[in-house]
Amino acid sequence: MKKHGHLNRDIARVLANMGHTDSIVIADCGLPIPEGVECIDVSLTLGVPGFFDVLDSVLADFKAERAVFASEAQTHNAAVVARARALAAAEVAVEEVPHETFKRRCREAKAVIRTGECSPYANVILHSGVIF
């Protein structure tokens, strides 16, 4: 049995297949999943698991070079804005785009991890960095 990292085999598989600049989305339970993009649904109930729980778990096992958030979080979700600032302080390039642009960019992701999060604009597109 696996001892460290992701126990969810689909998340582990997608992360293992990521190359430089590839992207993965961590989404709240309301974000539409683009046709043709794999959805790894880890939601159990409203709020479980939360966006930050899944984000922290992914970031513990993934080198992010860039993170994209919806600019609407600035006025609708202070916690997401605070996390974006923390990522920027950790030398991850942070970009904000309008939510409609965000949704279009999700079409390019390798997968969307759907959480149970039910707060507005709790979504991020993470672009893979390199570990060397």
Score class of each variant (00 low, 15 high):
residue 43 S to W: 00
residue 50 G to V: 03
residue 30 G to Y: 04
residue 2 K to Q: 11
residue 128 S to V: 12
residue 2 K to Y: 14
residue 69 F to V: 02
residue 4 H to Y: 14
residue 47 G to D: 06
residue 60 A to E: 11
residue 38 E to N: 06
residue 47 G to S: 06
residue 110 K to S: 11
residue 35 E to Y: 10
residue 85 R to G: 09
residue 51 F to W: 08
residue 25 V to F: 01
residue 68 V to D: 03
residue 61 D to G: 04
residue 124 V to S: 06
residue 110 K to T: 07
residue 86 A to R: 08
residue 111 A to Q: 05
residue 125 I to P: 02
residue 27 A to L: 00
residue 67 A to M: 10
residue 111 A to E: 04
residue 23 S to R: 15
residue 18 M to F: 08
residue 5 G to N: 09
residue 65 E to V: 06
residue 68 V to I: 15
residue 102 F to Q: 00
residue 68 V to N: 05
residue 20 H to Y: 15
residue 126 L to H: 03
residue 92 V to D: 06
residue 9 R to M: 12
residue 2 K to V: 14
residue 13 R to M: 03
residue 119 S to A: 09
residue 97 V to H: 05
residue 74 Q to T: 09
residue 36 G to W: 02
residue 8 N to T: 11
residue 43 S to L: 03
residue 79 A to C: 09
residue 97 V to I: 11
residue 3 K to Y: 11
residue 43 S to C: 06
residue 129 G to F: 07
residue 88 A to M: 13
residue 64 A to C: 13
residue 85 R to D: 15
residue 21 T to W: 10
residue 58 V to R: 06
residue 63 K to N: 12
residue 123 N to S: 03
residue 116 G to T: 00
residue 93 A to Q: 10
residue 37 V to T: 07
residue 79 A to G: 05
residue 80 V to H: 01
residue 6 H to M: 15
residue 64 A to K: 07
residue 15 L to D: 02
residue 50 G to Q: 03
residue 84 A to E: 01
residue 67 A to C: 13
residue 83 R to S: 05
residue 43 S to G: 15
residue 7 L to G: 10
residue 97 V to R: 03
residue 66 R to M: 10
residue 41 D to M: 02
residue 84 A to V: 05
residue 26 I to V: 09
residue 66 R to D: 05
residue 3 K to T: 09
residue 131 I to Y: 15
residue 11 I to Q: 10
residue 106 C to N: 02
residue 97 V to S: 07
residue 89 A to Y: 04
residue 34 P to W: 01
residue 37 V to P: 00
